[in-house]
């Protein structure tokens, strides 16, 4: 096994194109356990952390840009970011432990392709886009389209994610992420729920997004719930519809971490709770963008 540490996107791209079994990594918190467990055996490991733009967190009037290999601890420690996207920030803050978070990245969390990846529902409800680089140039892909199945992405073997773009959140917008694990940390989501709402001036919901993790082969959007929320104040009846819609989109498996029935029921519960937290945050974020 060889280790390579390119310092530019171009260098990384040509490394990937030249050796078919090369694989990128950022924090290596997924890939190293996979190599140890015999589930991966790449010939060349390409370290993305030496490329400047992959380890950065910046914003302008229009958007935030998060380097794909930026340690997720940045997302919890950057005050401006975590005030604007508390949901992404709290999802990032749930990944493993302090030690893990000082290595782990959004790019790795997404491209590892786990349906339980904590940051993905939170990124998705915020309309996050991934900038993908490859020998044929760059392309911008919605995060919801990157993962195509457990452990599978739409990336070619010589492509990788350079950065994520997240549009600045308008005022009266709030997001939230909740996950259910049997313990309090160091566990994998049995159900995860990310929500975002934007309120109209009258306090009703003008836009809503809801995504669930760990309940289907990939993270799923709950469009029926999103539609039901529009124009409401997320009253009890609407939340019951949200919960039912969330349970309905689940297509989970019975496994050592949870049963189908449990995941379906709790998906509804977390969906409801995430929407309520997002609502509360939206009410508090009034005009201070």
């Amino acid at each position: 096994m060889k280790y390579a540490a390119p310092s530019s996107v171009e260098e990384a791209t040509s490394l990937l194109s030249s050796s078919p079994s090369a694989q990128v990594f950022a924090g290596a918190t997924d890939i190293v356990p996979q190599i140890h467990g015999g589930r991966q055996a790449p010939e060349v490991l390409v370290d993305l952390k030496k490329i400047d733009e992959l380890v950065s967190l910046t914003s302008d009037d229009k958007k935030w840009t998060v380097g794909a290999a930026t340690p997720t601890v940045e997302l919890t420690e950057n005050q401006a970011f975590s005030q604007e996207f508390p949901g992404i920030s709290e999802a990032a803050g749930l990944i493993g432990s302090d030690q893990i978070q000082s290595r782990s990245s959004l790019g790795g969390n997404l491209c590892n392709g786990s349906p339980a990846a904590d940051s993905v529902p939170a990124m998705m409800v915020n309309g996050t886009r991934a900038l993908i680089a490859g020998p044929k140039g760059n392309r911008l892909v919605d995060v919801s389209e990157v993962v195509t199945g457990p452990g599978q992405t739409c990336l070619d073997s010589d492509e990788f994610v350079v950065e994520f773009e997240i549009d600045r959140a308008p005022s009266l917008t709030g997001d939230a992420y909740l996950r259910m694990i049997p313990r309090t940390e160091m566990d994998i989501a049995v159900v995860g729920a990310g929500a975002r709402v934007t309120l109209a001036e009258d306090g009703t919901i003008a836009a809503a997004a809801l995504a669930l993790g760990a309940v289907a082969p990939t993270v799923v959007r709950v469009t029926a719930a999103e539609e039901a929320l529009i124009g409401t104040t997320a009253d009890e009846d609407t939340l019951a519809v949200v919960a039912a819609a969330a349970s309905a989109v689940c297509n989970p498996i019975d496994d050592k971490r949870g049963t189908i029935a449990y995941r379906e029921q709790v998906a509804g519960v977390l969906a409801k709770r995430a929407v309520l937290i997002a609502m509360e945050r939206a009410q508090q974020r009034n005009g201070d963008v």
Binding site: R183, T184, E185, M186, D187, I188, K256, R257
Partner: peptide
């Protein structure tokens, strides 16, 4: 055995 690791054999962690 399907859960031969501390990830899925869930012993309590300190924060529990």
């Amino acid at each position: 055995m399907e859960n031969p690791s501390f990830l899925d054999y869930r012993m309590p962690v300190a924060s529990d």
